[in-house]
Design a protein around this nucleic acid. Structure first.
Lengths: 199, 199
DNA sequence: ATATTATCTTGACACTGTCAAGATTTTGAC
DNA sequence: GTCAAAATCTTGACAGTGTCAAGATAATAT
């Protein structure tokens, strides 16, 4: 860390990381461009040299979140090339783990705070890449007769939606105490996935 | 509509309705207390006589949304007392329909914009009541051997999460074009639910 | 070395949520 | 019915926000 120069050197990434940090400490509501700028040690308008507007910074943070999610998913799945069922189980476990560990990043990625996601190519790319990874696992499970045959895309959406929905409801406090007091979220999701598995 | 008096008469509900209207026209990002006040024809501070803060108005709007969701769910389910499977099918259809028709109300209900939902008793009540309604259907399906036996609460969470997750992903544009171009959202959800049904 | 570009600062603007002080109306106690 | 208290609404102010314009500074290219 050199002393503060006029030019920051890597402000763009510094802003993204400052944003992620604020997000985890103050939540989505506490995330402002000016706070991010201050945390990065620059003036309140400096971010505009790197992001055309706040939405664009949010897109960058979300993209970074997706990159991390993909990495964790892949790390959980890859060791089990020969075992489709464990791919499914460990993948969903990693997804739930990510959501619980990086709650607010997860929210900003999926809760519609980012309004025109299609306008951010990097976001679309990693988002599609992630879905493709899910698709791979689903196809592997289909050929192993662990999941029903049929359109793999729809089935992948079903599986992802299943996990995503339960996690989302839990994060919003919509899942009744009687459930979450007796079972950990991971168990609930595992149960749900088990519901879809054949035999 | 009487001419404008100093006292509005039913400002609280007028504010809620103005909020819902703004929500549907400008989305979550366009919802501000001052716009709501203007639309209701009062000064920018008038809302504070009825809501302690913006979160509280959002809670009221969300509560109203849940009331409507419950009503539509119930209307779709009740006609089929003797047929648990149709209860399940028509209930999910109504849920998807609600989300597609009142997209931004749905978002404000479930996307964590409301930060401390537990502090709003009316919200908690209708939210629990809705879950109970889902639970009823699930139990009926279990006794009819249409859904697996086991903890009905977890199963209800699974079913609700399944539908909710797919709908949420679709609303956020996270479901690939190749899926949503060839199948309507209702079909995708129906497929997913069919996946859980026995036989 | 100089011109161009990228980066950053300062200052301003309209908009936001929120509060305080006061005006107006309704309600309740007698 | 009168009058005090409470509820409702307005006006004015404040700090914080996203965003833009103008200018300062540094890096790059010619």
């Amino acid at each position: 860390m050199p002393a503060k120069k006029y030019h920051h050197g890597d402000l763009k990434n510094a802003l993204i990381n400052a944003g992620i940090e604020i997000l985890s400490k103050e939540g989505v509501g506490g995330l402002s461009l000016r706070k991010v700028a201050k945390k990065a040690g620059v003036s309140h308008s400096a971010p505009y040299a790197h992001f055309p507007d706040k939405q664009s910074l949010i897109a960058a943070i979300s993209t970074e979140g997706f990159n991390q999610l993909y990495a964790e998913l892949d790390a959980a799945i890859s060791p089990h090339i020969k075992n489709p069922k464990r791919q499914l189980v460990e993948g969903t476990r990693a997804y739930v783990q990510f959501a619980m560990t990086h709650t607010d990043t997860f929210k900003i990625m999926f809760s519609g705070i980012l309004e025109k996601e299609k306008e951010y190519p990097a976001f679309v790319e990693i988002s599609c890449k992630t879905f493709k990874r899910v698709l791979d696992v689903v196809v592997a499970c289909q050929t192993a007769k662990i999941l029903k045959s049929g359109s793999p895309e729809i089935l992948a959406v079903s599986v992802w939606g299943q996990v995503h929905g339960i996690v989302s409801l839990a994060l919003e406090g919509q899942i009744s105490h009687t459930v979450l007091e007796h079972y950990a979220l991971q168990e609930v999701v595992a149960f749900a996935i088990d519901q879809m598995v054949l035999s």
